[in-house]
Nucleic acid binder design. Structure first.
Lengths: 334, 334
DNA sequence: CTGTTAGCGCCTTCAG
DNA sequence: CTGAAGGCGCTAACAG
């Protein structure tokens, strides 16, 4: 059996209280006593039982993240970076990170319910918000703190929002200067906030630059490279195909690049392609992909910080806006 | 406050014992009573407090996974798929998955210690094993059950091992038939079991096909696409450069493709490139990447199954061997 | 500065 | 079939 606080106390002829306080860094313990305790604890390999502590303190010291439903979409570097950020930051604060993966909408819902009701997590980080996302109402009703990358609805909660309006203006400007004119947009699922926002910024930027947008040029995928490929094949088969394809994310853009290659198009000259998110591999695609880069790792860390503050009842400034950074690469010429 | 078992009992004028048993599916509860309890519990939104249950049962009903140290490596789709698999399968068994991310060797170690000693997890899944990995000895000493993708050392533990010997023979054969002769290998860190194994199979396959291997052609990276790019630039600058570059993973191969493009080489004709792992994007690189595919999601699920069996004291057949599947794509011609 | 005491919510003997 | 009692390991009053 693993040693308990009692074992440590017994060994030192101290009360368990003293041991507990010494280890937790209270200042009402004599310095020599503390040192003794700390040393003995380490030597015995003692470390407090999480369940007991949680039960007593009435908090889990754990935050949760649930990979959104849609198994095929998981093969995205985005989530690795995001989870790494969450794990990194929570570890720093001595919090644990609980992760699960949902199959479908139903299992997703039951996961959230189990976590919320079981007191398993003190708070949650959300991601890939949908328009009218039930999770927001659910968590708000249950009074479970949560933060989220992006925002939707009228409920107010701490979040980080991307502000891509300027980024898109810059991007479209850059693409135009390279001589491209006929724009298309390959989006994601229509109910995804990411999709709606990014498409919105794109439209705005088009208006800003006074470029006419053909609605036929707006198509949807599911954020995967395969869906990007599929969408691009269709776009390029149109009688008047686009020569500048903006994508909702980098994965989609990879698929578009592939389709353009298959068509024998010279990317960067005959057609421009751009992504969004700035995953590592975008640097090494053929040609390297122009993208609106967002610092996923840091965003995840900051979401944890905001969440922990919320949990501890501190005020949090929100929303925090992050502006993507345009990385000009050969896929858009220039 | 969230309802406790006591609230449910009070409402129904039953003892908490009965409620507990009714919900846990014991068979010594009258059927009408059970139904009443289940209904009331659902209606009140009751679900047992995890911490209390864990404390009482002396098990965490939680398994752990720690993203290995090396932040830049996290931007890999591999881990998203792996974690999704772990999360998926543990949720199926009503287990939780705890995830953390290590900065460096030191923080990695302290994470494992905290988890092991704190009784936070009933077991762990390992990954990216190193030669003489301290984690194995540590966990074995502490009697913490664990499973791992790949194996090293003399300690026996349940694991899934890749058997790539045949896969590499097939791959080399395929590449040779396409007319390539001068092989190179871009590996990972020298102490990584993945690296050692894959390089080993590669060497074996070369011997099998009686192809002379120039030691200068074996170089190392850190599994990232950037390191693959770097390595390839150097290889291709040699007086007698390779025309077939085999890579320890797909990310590395993406970097190699990029470098080859920069050199103006026609990939699939003038040079062959292959990866390992079969991440989604390999299908859409330019040209699509030949790779030895392994079912990462399923492997992760199976590792969880094996781990849970081990935790429950069941015997587990191990090692389980998985043979990669050669996906022939244009990056190797043919 | 240190010890005593009283639970946190649940499960599990052991009695009825 | 159901209930009463005890305690998992820890922390936070409250005394000394």
């Amino acid at each position: 059996m693993r040693p308990t606080i009692r074992d440590v106390a017994k060994k030192l002829n101290l009360s368990i209280t003293t041991v507990s306080r010494a280890l937790d860094g209270y200042d009402d313990v004599a310095e020599p006593t503390r040192e003794m305790v700390v040393k003995a604890a380490r030597q015995m390999g003692y470390s407090p039982n999480r369940a007991a502590r949680q039960l007593r303190r009435q908090k889990a010291e754990t935050i949760g993240f649930i990979l959104p439903a849609g198994a095929q979409r998981f093969a995205e570097a985005f989530f690795t970076e995001f989870i790494a950020g969450l794990g990194h930051e929570s570890a720093l604060h001595n919090y644990d990170l609980l992760v699960s993966a949902a199959d479908d909408g139903k299992s997703e819902r039951s996961l959230y319910e189990r976590w919320a009701n079981g007191g398993k997590v003190d708070g949650l980080v959300l991601n890939r918000l949908r328009i009218r996302d039930w999770r927001i109402k659910f968590l708000a009703d249950q009074r479970i703190p949560f933060t989220s990358l992006s925002h939707t609805g009228s409920v107010n909660f701490p979040c980080i929002r991307i502000d891509g309006a300027e980024g898109y203006i810059e991007l479209i400007d850059h693409v135009c200067r390279s001589g491209f004119r006929r724009f298309a947009f390959v989006g994601g699922p229509a109910n995804l906030v990411n999709h709606v926002e990014r498409l919105g910024w794109f439209r705005q930027a088009m208006r800003h630059h006074k470029i006419v947008l053909d609605e036929e040029m707006i198509v949807s995928g599911d954020l995967s490279s395969s869906s990007g490929y599929q969408a691009a094949i269709e776009l390029l088969s149109l009688p008047d195909p686009p020569d500048a394809v903006m994508c909702v994310n980098d994965e989609t853009a990879f698929g578009v690049l592939h389709a353009a290659h298959n068509r024998g198009l010279e990317i960067g000259r005959q057609i421009a392609v751009a992504g969004f998110e700035g995953v590592q591999d975008a640097k090494h695609s053929e040609p390297p992909l122009t993208t609106l880069d967002i610092p996923v790792f840091d965003i995840a860390r900051q979401l944890v910080d905001m969440l922990l503050k919320t949990i501890n009842g501190e005020k949090v400034e929100s929303p925090v806006f992050v502006r993507p950074n345009l990385l000009r690469r050969p896929s858009t010429g220039g």
